[in-house]
Design a protein around this nucleic acid. Structure first.
Length: 453
RNA sequence: GGCCAGGUGGCGGAGUGGCUACGCAGCGGCCUGCAAAGCCGUGAACACCGGUUCGAAUCCGGUCCUGGCCUCCA
């Protein structure tokens, strides 16, 4: 079963063939580190993590690059606002990003380049574009000359005339063409800056991805991913710069974009005041629950984030962890992967379909099919789920108030009461645990407890 | 205004021509000291109007509605 991916460049689901056999390069636009990651930042991290896991299974050499943008005006603003240095803002928020993504079960990319560590490469590429006549210097800025690149607008399917007609911002007077965009801009003394042939300044937003992807993955690589909002202008501009700098070689072969998240049907935005940080969600939900809730909708669709979706995910995980109770967490062997899960994922990452197949396995496992339980464990791990022991899943919860030794003692006391047929006492203990958020389950001679609510 | 996605049962969510997923919730039952979980059974949908076809949620045309982008944004 071969992988196919919906390619924004062709608008069709295309069979995936790497440029070099057995070798895949994937570049995903990572966070601008100026604030805590919100769930919109988390979606691509989780979606491309699933793709990464899938690719690693099928190809020998997979290189996953996800950048960290640590030079940006939003960072400058945040530093001013918090009366904090820029380095402190970027160090603090990228650390938080790593912690939060790890909680969601997202693996670290192979390479995580930082923009500020690649200034020489960016400057070189910009100079190269000037030399080739694709960029020009004007009032301390360097601008990309859109008119010199015939394919500009192809990826995002828009033409320059329409864009200019719809433009809602003043066009800077030094631009030759209203659509020209900044490769380099001057910095004032209180802004971060680097020496360059055009004076002290800093890079425009798009150039870092072109320079860094070139360094780690080469002129043309296989998969370029990110959120849908990046198609224009970010990816359009990256593609234009890179193609011009590389004699027309296309930047990426498959462009993969995830859809947006809304909150209770509304756009998530600072102006609406409904931005949910991952950190905040982790206060009341386990990371794995958030991850499953995210994978419950196909990645290209809009995802409405609601409490009921989280409850659904939590419930499903309870059921699955119960079904794989007797299967070690690290049983994973490719032989046990369910073909239906595999097929669903290979079909443009159809995670909802894969989840359906997991439900079917859980049913079989519940019916006593031990092989199905093993398959459930190993197949779920393709989606980065069911990676922990069932007991630690059930016992883990946020806001723990009772310690486990005490719970175990109470469970024992209750079982003693049950054995003595003192059901009033047994129920009293059950009630006490319940009000502390602990649910008991008597099954097959053993009593399990788990966190509820 | 331009471009791009969508509109599926009470809710979530797959499905590109026929076999009417799946999960949650509901209803009836089995099981259980109680409970939970599980199991069996069950009702319920394809925005609207035309068209193509033996047959359409699925293809074509139109209408209405929703979201995103066009400016920083995952």
């Amino acid at each position: 079963m071969g992988l196919s991916l919906y390619n924004t460049a062709t608008h069709t689901k295309d069979p995936f063939e790497p440029l070099v056999p057995d070798t895949v390069g994937m570049y995903v636009c990572g966070p601008t580190v100026y604030d805590l990651a919100h769930i919109g930042n988390a979606r691509p991290a989780v979606v491309f993590d699933v793709l990464y896991r899938l690719l690693k299974r099928q190809y020998k050499n997979v290189t996953y690059v996800r950048n960290i943008t640590d030079v940006d005006d939003k960072i400058i603003d945040a530093a001013k606002r918090n009366d904090e240095t820029i380095e402190s803002v970027t160090a603090r928020t990228s650390k938080a990003y790593h912690e939060d993504m790890a909680e969601l079960g997202a693996m670290q990319p192979d390479i995580e380049p930082r923009a500020t560590a690649h200034l020489p490469q960016m400057i070189e590429m910009i100079q190269n574009l000037i030399d080739l006549g694709n960029a020009y210097e004007a009032e301390g800025h360097v601008l990309f000359a859109v008119a010199e690149f015939a394919d500009y607008g192809k990826l995002s399917r828009r033409n320059r005339d329409e864009m200019l007609a719809g433009a809602r911002v003043e066009v800077a007077p030094y631009k030759r063409d209203g659509a020209d965009f900044v490769l380099w801009k001057p910095s004032t003394d209180d802004q971060p800056g680097w020496e360059s042939p055009w004076g002290r300044g800093r890079p425009g937003w798009h150039i870092e991805c072109s320079a860094m992807s070139n360094q780690y993955l080469g002129k043309t690589f296989d998969i370029h991913g990110g959120g849908q909002d990046l198609i224009f202008p970010h990816h359009e501009n990256e593609a234009a710069q890179s193609a011009c700098a590389h004699d027309g070689a296309p930047l990426a072969r498959y462009w993969v974009h995830n859809g947006f998240i809304t909150i209770d049907g509304e756009k998530m935005a600072k102006s609406v005041g409904n931005v949910r940080s991952v950190r905040q969600l982790l206060e009341s939900h386990r990371g794995e629950t958030i991850r499953l809730a995210m994978l419950g909708t196909h990645y290209r669709k809009g995802l409405d984030w609601t409490d009921s979706a989280l409850k659904l995910a939590d419930k499903a995980l309870d059921k699955w962890y119960e079904a794989v109770k007797d299967v070690d967490a690290d049983t994973g062997s490719a032989d046990h992967i369910d073909p239906a899960v595999d097929a669903a994922l290979n079909d443009d990452l159809n995670t909802p379909q894969a989840i359906t197949a997991l439900h079917a396995l859980a049913s079989d496992a519940w019916a006593g099919n031990a092989e199905a339980a093993v398959k459930l464990r190993t197949s779920a791990q393709l989606l980065g789920l069911l990676g922990q022991d069932s007991e630690s899943w059930f016992h883990s919860h946020v806001g723990v108030t009772l310690d486990e030794t005490k719970i175990d003692a109470m469970v024992e006391a209750r079982n003693a009461a049950r054995a003595a047929r003192d059901f009033a006492e047994a129920d009293r203990i059950r009630g006490e645990l319940e009000s502390a958020g602990i649910a008991l389950e008597d099954s097959a001679g053993k009593t399990y407890w788990k966190r509820s609510g």
